[in-house]
Amino acid sequence: MNLAMETKEFYFTYAGAEAPTLKGIDMPIYANKVTALIGPSGCGKSTLLRSWNRIHDVYPGNRYEGEILLYDKEGNEENILSYSKEDELIRLRQRVGMIFQKPTPFPMSIYDNIAYGLRLAGIKNRSELDGRVEKALKGAAIWNEVKDRLKQSAMGLSGGQQQRLCIARAVALKPELLLFDEPTSALDPISTGAIEELVTELKEEVTIAIVTHNMQQASRVSDYTAFMYLGDLIEFGKTEKIFVNPKEKLTEEYITGRFG
């Protein structure tokens, strides 16, 4: 099985904080699989996820220690924590996309939302843009709903549609890894179902890591699950294994809803 990313002895400390929020995380992310991150509120799931594309660097003073290796298709690895130049970070974020809890359409048209990242990446050719936008919208299962209103503002879409638009926007850049931070917690059950289906389809193309508070969701969509608690990774393994027969008592207690 191929690795997409590997986190080794990873510590993360927020700016101004005394103690690290993540304390020595070791875990793999396998290529073309869905990895779920679960754990009680405040345990550091988002913090870990946001380290994987170094979005933390938008704010000054945060500190990383350890290694996060990103593998390309040929199996070559790079430690993303060694990046220091802006262009390296930009390249990283084009390779590792991110979807947030609330939909974040930009204040521009549907078309321009998708084309935005492509234009940043230097694609100017009109027909190529059109093609990639259409492909991305189809890939995010929203093409049929928006194809007649591509020039309208993205703000007019429903919450679920906006979230799929944001997924399309990320997919358009052909990332290798997509990070989802509770992508459905602000959505109704039907939109949630659509996103879950989409995640399952997308893993043909990209590797996915998803933070969720919803145990059913984790067991439905993920192949691997990582359970975190107070900044530690307590247990990592195949999802069936974690849910049916966890090694750690803490994991079992959390999954069966005895705390969290």
Binding site: V58, R93, G97, T104, L120, A170
Partner: peptide, 29 residues
């Protein structure tokens, strides 16, 4: 301007100036 909106532009590889120009100014226009 909501922080997540800016972050999602950064997450697509935008530079600081591009975030200001394409996200913040339109939002706070």
């Amino acid at each position: 301007t909501p922080a997540v909106l800016k972050e999602s532009a950064y997450a697509m590889g935008a530079t600081r100036f591009e975030v200001v120009k394409d996200v913040i100014f339109p939002y706070a226009k």
